[in-house]
Simulated assay, not measured.
Amino acid sequence: MIRFEGVAKTYPGQARPAVAGIDLTVAEGATLALIGPSGCGKSTLLRMVNRLVDPDAGRVLVGGEDVAGLDPVALRRRIGYVLQGVGLFPHRSVAQNVATVPGLLGWPKRRIRERVDAMLDLVGLEPAAYRDRRPDELSGGQRQRVGVARALAADPAVLLMDEPFGAVDPLGRVRLQAEIGEILGRLGKTVLLVTHDLDEAVRLGDRVALMRDGRLVQDAAPADLLARPADAFVEEFVGADRWLRRLALIPATAARSPEKATDDAPRLPGGASLKDALGLLLAGGSERVGLATEGSVTLTSLRAAAVAPTRDSP
């Protein structure tokens, strides 16, 4: 759905290119997380998609079309955009903010009203309670939800998210990531996400692309990035605790042992990860914890599942 072909960009007065010959694809309906140190070029790459930045060389294709040949205004109206700090219009109500693009597209008023309420419902904001509020009456997390609702209002196939949760407090950020990630997965949107937060990248991305000095260093599934860093830079970037991060991506059922846990053993809830299983094993001092379905998890079975390739895990 989104394809970068040899794209490069050097800003005036800069000796080093911001982006240097990137080839990268975001599959239709998938989320690709772009991550890397500050100044690595990830936001520049994202802004090439909706022509806020034009490349000096190479092509950016959306749905097979070279965006260089498209009208920038028309292009931006068919691509959702969520950024840090949200960028809501402070003088407009929540409903008016969400209705921005449908209004520009000339939708009938009744259709706009129905769509606004549907989008607020989608992001967990009761329409009757929030549609007439102003942005300064909302918390950071609520403003971010409105920003997502606005980006999705015209039902774009492509969504760009540039540090979307950076202004939300840490506890609210984790919850919001989970909820928005579930919504985007359910809607089947093609998402390009820029973040500096590795946990956010591996939690939300179907793939993670790590950049350094304008170049692509590694593009991999999150579990593969953590298990098999491409070089010393990637290994340092993902950190010494990368194996613990990886456990959170693998379902506890991947470590299923056929033996039953005892009746008094701790039990994992449905949807638990290997990280959840390890925590329960350590906290309870148990040799075995029960799964929500049949079987159990032990430290031995967990260790085996943790080092196995994710694609082969049950």
Rank of each mutant, 00 (worst) to 15 (best):
K275Y: 05
V7P: 09
A15L: 02
L160Q: 10
A254L: 00
D169C: 03
D54F: 01
A15D: 14
D276E: 15
V49L: 03
R246F: 15
R16T: 15
V234R: 12
D224F: 02
A20C: 11
N97K: 12
A252K: 08
R3T: 10
V191A: 07
K109H: 10
P127S: 10
V191N: 07
L88C: 10
R76W: 15
A27C: 02
V297W: 10
K260G: 12
P266T: 12
A252P: 11
V53T: 11
V194N: 07
V168L: 01
T190L: 00
L282D: 07
K189Y: 08
I183R: 02
R131G: 04
R78Q: 14
D197C: 03
K42H: 11
P90S: 08
D162I: 00
G39M: 01
D121F: 11
R242A: 15
V158D: 05
D197K: 07
D312L: 09
R246Y: 15
V158M: 08
G58Y: 02
L225W: 05
A248M: 06
T298D: 03
S139A: 04
G29I: 00
P266N: 13
R303G: 15
R267N: 11
V116W: 11
E200A: 05
R173S: 10
V307C: 09
R242W: 14
